[in-house]
């Protein structure tokens, strides 16, 4: 997934000299190719994220196409106001990349963990929020962000969980939910984003063969009609995300369903709490009840209760 990210960035930059990559002193090995292939389009703005995002707005105003890279804990949350005022307010085509979202930095603690970024960015008018799950989605999301010329926050979480798609997604439209497993009407549906699409797929394949599974690479915009259709055809909906249950994908689906297609929805995510300990990524998922066995148990309990 990270290779796809780097490859897509290099491809876009080589095709368009207006593409610039700004980094807040992050991405050491990730940008080796970019620095070699497009050195004049690379700007390390230093450990100074607020200035970097403001400058990206100024560069966009002069016709450049900035990609702004940082860790998800810093881009967007540390610079939320710059994103709101300097970029989103004027629809500037700046693409903000927040890497290492969720619990990727499991050993480093709260400063580097990011489970509120989607909630924060979603509420900013005219800002799109993308959350790809695999290399196909990341390439499609980046190409789409570049083509549509709107301000985008692109969240990259745990990147080594394997593909959930089997083919190129170049035809994808912003807001679309992508089916990664077909199911039957009247069964349950699982909707997930980012790294937890893999978990949803694994659980459905093992335990709920009749369930449909959807990946949501777009948190905003969201194709409401598609959500309504899925909810209307499902006995219950399980939403999975490596993000707070407050304001993320679970909220998006629930908001739409409650108005147009009421259905029981289980929101599986971070329960409004910080990590208490450190350990491997798998350990942190377990601490937050987001490991596969814990999620399966929650789904079982939910289906028994409902």
């Amino acid at each position: 997934m990270r290779a796809a990210f780097s490859d897509t960035l290099v491809r876009l930059a080589k095709a368009d000299p207006n593409v610039l990559l700004l980094t807040g002193d992050h991405g050491y090995a990730l940008f080796d190719d970019f620095r070699r292939e497009c050195p004049a389009q690379y700007i390390n703005a230093g450990i100074a994220e607020q200035n970097m995002v403001g400058m990206a707005a100024g560069l966009a105003r002069t016709g450049f196409r900035p990609f702004v890279y940082g860790l998800s804990a810093f881009i967007p949350v540390r610079v939320l106001e710059q994103i709101k005022l300097d970029i989103a307010h004027d629809h500037l085509p700046v693409i903000l990349i927040g890497d290492g979202a969720g619990f990727v930095y499991s050993h480093l603690g709260t400063s580097h963990q990011s489970t509120e970024d989607m909630a924060c960015t979603r509420a900013i008018p005219d800002l799109s929020v993308y959350s790809p799950a695999d290399r196909f989605e990341v390439s499609a999301c980046m190409a789409l962000a570049y083509q549509t010329k709107v301000p985008v926050y692109l969240r990259m979480g745990k990147s080594d969980r394997g593909d959930v798609h089997t083919h190129d997604l170049s035809q994808v439209k912003a807001g679309q939910l992508l089916q990664v497993k077909a199911g039957q009407a009247g069964a349950i549906s699982l909707i997930a984003t980012g790294a937890l699409v893999r978990t949803a797929l694994d659980i459905a394949q093992a335990s709920y063969p009749e369930a449909s599974v959807w990946s949501a690479p777009f948190i905003k915009p969201m194709d409401s009609q598609q959500v309504i259709t899925i909810c209307a055809q499902s006995r219950a909906v399980m939403v999975l995300e490596e993000h707070s249950v407050l304001g993320g994908l679970g909220s998006v689906i629930t908001e739409i369903a409650s108005e147009f297609a009421p259905v029981r929805i289980l929101r599986v995510g971070v329960q409004d709490r910080f990590s208490q300990h450190c350990g491997t990524y798998e350990y942190l998922l377990k601490e937050h009840g987001l490991d596969r066995p814990a999620v399966e148990q929650r789904i079982r309990d939910f289906l028994i209760a409902n």
């Binding site: 607020q50 400058m55 707005a57 100024g58 560069l59 105003r61 002069t62 710059q82 005022l85 300097d86």
Partner: peptide, 19 residues
């Protein structure tokens, strides 16, 4: 620029100068 929240325009201006 859209300013009033302070310390924004300076950076946007730098981006324009860099551009």
């Amino acid at each position: 620029v859209t300013s009033g929240s302070l310390g924004h325009g300076f950076s946007v201006g730098l981006g324009m100068a860099m551009g």
